[in-house]
Amino acid sequence: MYGKGLRALSIATVAAMALALSLVFFYAPLDAEQGFLQKIFYLHVPLAIVALCGFVLGALLAIAHLRTRDPRWDMRSYVAIHMSLIFGVGALITGSIWAKGSWGHWWVWSEPTLVSFLIVFLLYATYQPLRFAIEDPERQARYASVFAITAGAFVPLNFMAVRLASAYVHPRVLGSTSNLPGPMALTFLVSLAAMALLYATLCKFELTAKHTRAQLRALRRRLLGEIPDAQARRTRSAAPTLQPGATVGTQAASRTAL
């Protein structure tokens, strides 16, 4: 059931990415001041926006997990945050390249959005170590959800605080599309949509892979009997694993949800 629609989604993503890239390189005008380098904006900003939205999405999915105690919500929350971390690395690298190109430094403290993003990223970097440090899968899922909700609320708060603290207010291309000329705005919006599609597709791939692995384990267990302890331990990781009997537990859990 997880794999359904994966092919269509993948094709849509490839098409959207192709469209976005061709708009970036052939349609959007060159920036008067920054020239060709400004085109990294169409990569950097969508990466950052999608990553941040993914973090907040992870928090919402975590709320669903705490309310229902259904491990599948925890799995979705994990995948959302995991993928956002990967996108976040991309956003930090592209941001750094852009800063080097336009200001001459790999890092600038005067850009509040970039600074806030780094703080958020550092916080989320502890998500996987936290999961990894908890043995009991159920408690791991619950603690991870508490973390995800706290961190999700932290994202906007932190942005406000850092914005307040930055003495400089740059004339900014970032963030709002209202001050962009038409073709640039269109290109940006298409790039954003393509990046969001890429995020959704990759999340779906990861979910499908995890689900398939869980099914495989359940099948192997049915054929070969109990998996020896040593083998079970080798597969322990920060990532949640869906229990073969999860659906049974889910019914019990939803019955108990008040």
């Binding site: 170590p129 908890i134 932290f154």
Partner: peptide, 20 residues
């Protein structure tokens, strides 16, 4: 506190949250 790496995770989780 109920994780294996409690002494590490406390500061790592706390410091970014305390930046504001």
């Amino acid at each position: 506190v109920r994780t294996r790496a409690r002494d590490l995770l406390g500061p790592l989780l706390g410091l970014p949250l305390l930046v504001p």
